[in-house]
Amino acid sequence: MTDTTTIELKNIDPGDISDVLVKIEKSFGFKFGDTELKDVKTFGELCDIITSRVQGDNVDDCTNQQGFYKIRNAIATIQATDKNSITPDTNLQQIFPRPNRRKKIKELKNELDMAVDILDIKGWLRWTIFSGVAGSLIMFFFNWKLALSGLTFFIVISWAAYNFFAKEFKLATVGQLTEKLVRENYLKSRRNSSTINRNEIARKVKEFFSKELDLEEEVLTRQATFV
């Protein structure tokens, strides 16, 4: 184990790790006990606990492949298109044109019965909101009433922007969408949700930590320590 590996994991905010663990619970369909993780010191130990907790008949097949077929069929249904024309490399912008993109993504969510959080607001609008919130926080040092008004205003603007104007894709292809949805909805992505491929679970946990915490997978070795 290198010093870099140790530092990478030690520097993670415990709150961020807790958020990832909640997503893992949802994806794999179980809840950690209150003290179940208190003695966990390495990433490998965490993976072993998660692997042991996931329930289902073990089947040696590929969940990503099954997830892709589900997503492909759902897209073909709501867009009334030939499913065979949809591949992992298919561009999402081509499938979902901007004019009715939000409506179609909502239909995709309902068809899959999964959260499909793949839309974002334009970069300039996101930067404007961020700058406004930051400026309002700084204003607390000078005029708390004005700062509170500004903060409230930009929070409302942020809520409205993400709920009514988010049309930019966070992902580029159907393959990337599949990877995200399978990671976040492992059991739902399988053809039979009462089965699992136990050999995949540690890899999915590594994907969670890598994507959610912006870590290189190379630092997520079994020996990498949290403390």
Rank of each mutant, 00 (worst) to 15 (best):
W144M: 11
F32C: 09
I155R: 04
A74V: 03
T173Y: 03
T63I: 02
F28C: 02
G150C: 01
N91V: 13
V219I: 03
K70H: 05
A172G: 02
Q55T: 13
L171F: 10
V22R: 13
N100K: 15
I12H: 07
I196Q: 01
F30E: 10
Y162N: 04
L171A: 05
K31F: 04
N143P: 06
I7K: 14
A76H: 08
K70Q: 12
F226K: 04
A147T: 09
S52N: 15
D60C: 03
T4R: 13
K204D: 09
L187H: 08
A74H: 03
A224N: 00
I17T: 08
L220F: 04
D89N: 15
D113Q: 14
F30K: 08
F169I: 09
I121D: 01
R98T: 15
F32E: 07
K170D: 07
N163S: 07
M114P: 06
F141Q: 07
L177A: 00
Q223D: 12
K41I: 13
K103Q: 15
D13H: 10
V156L: 11
Q223K: 06
K41S: 05
E216S: 14
V219G: 00
F142N: 06
Q65G: 11
K188G: 09
E111W: 03
F209E: 11
D48N: 13
N197D: 15
E8D: 14
N143V: 02
K170E: 12
N192D: 09
L146C: 10
I78V: 09
T178M: 00
G67D: 00
K211W: 13
L46F: 11
I155M: 05
D113T: 11
V156G: 07
T221V: 06
L137V: 10
E207R: 15
L92R: 10
N192W: 03
I138R: 12
S18N: 14
A172M: 02
G135T: 06
D60K: 10
I24A: 06
S85I: 05
R72K: 14
